[in-house]
Computed example of a mutant assay.
Amino acid sequence: MRPINILLADDDPLDIIDISRQLDKQHIIYQLYEAHNGEEAIGILEEAPEPPDIALIDINMPKMNGLELLQTIRQHERWKHLKCFIITTSDEKIDRRTASALGVSGYIIKPLKLNSPASMDAFNLMIDLINLKSME
């Protein structure tokens, strides 16, 4: 099994630790590329020889927010099929609609207690995709 390359765009160090812990609990072998805003995430994508297997994106970040980042990803030929999951504290309907219109693979509410059915479904889908990628 190969490690899964995960781009994590989140400006909160505690959320980054929490997401890493959740991935570790699932016994996932991964390489995490951290970006603290959308601009850093674009820089990581531009420098990577291949797009990551999956992107986890917070909405509320400085410089370029998560929805702007997702829109940029979808407009770029090389990245437009990247599986992206929103992981955010925002449960606003407009954010959900915008993310959905931009082809988000799942929408997970932080903190990752996963007590809502929608967050749990999105998290399980993300784990399933990661597991499939690791077998390639």
Rank of each mutant, 00 (worst) to 15 (best):
A55H: 02
E68Y: 10
R74P: 04
K83I: 15
F85G: 07
H76K: 13
I73K: 00
K80D: 13
I59V: 12
P51L: 02
I57A: 02
K80M: 10
W79T: 15
Q71G: 01
A48K: 09
I73E: 00
L56C: 12
D58W: 08
C84R: 01
Q71D: 03
F85R: 07
I73S: 00
K80P: 10
P49T: 05
W79S: 13
K83E: 14
E77Q: 11
W79P: 10
P49S: 10
C84D: 09
I54L: 14
L56A: 09
I59W: 07
L82C: 07
M64V: 02
G66M: 03
G66E: 00
I73G: 00
N65Y: 05
E50P: 03
A48Q: 13
L82M: 12
F85S: 03
K80T: 15
I54T: 06
I59K: 13
A48H: 08
N60P: 04
L82S: 05
E50S: 09
H81W: 10
H81S: 15
H76N: 14
I54W: 04
E50T: 13
M61S: 06
H76I: 13
N65E: 01
E68V: 10
A55Q: 06
T72V: 08
A55K: 01
Q75A: 11
M61A: 09
I57M: 09
R78V: 15
T72H: 11
T72I: 01
P52C: 09
D53Y: 06
L69G: 09
E50C: 08
I57P: 04
L70V: 04
I73N: 00
T72F: 02
F85V: 07
L67T: 07
P51E: 07
A48S: 15
L56Y: 11
L67M: 05
I54M: 08
P62T: 11
A48M: 13
A55L: 04
D58A: 10
P49V: 06
L56T: 08
L82Q: 10
N65P: 03
M64Y: 01
A48L: 12
K83L: 15
E50Y: 09
T72D: 05
L70W: 01
R78M: 13
M61T: 07
F85M: 05
E68R: 12
A48W: 01
P49D: 11
H76Q: 15
I54K: 03
K63G: 08
P51D: 07
N65I: 03
D53N: 13
Q75F: 06
L67W: 00
P52L: 10
E50A: 06
G66F: 03
I54S: 05
H81M: 12
I73W: 00
T72Q: 07
L69P: 00
R74Q: 04
M61I: 04
D53F: 05
R74V: 03
I57W: 06
N60H: 09
D53A: 12
E47C: 11
E77Y: 09
I59R: 08
P62G: 07
I57N: 06
D58K: 13
Q71W: 00
D58Y: 03
P49C: 03
K63C: 07
L69D: 01
N60L: 10
A48T: 08
R78H: 14
N65T: 02
P51W: 01
H81A: 15
L69N: 04
H76S: 15
N65A: 02
M64S: 06
L82V: 11
H81L: 13
K63M: 11
D53Q: 05
E68F: 06
N60F: 01
F85Q: 05
D58H: 07
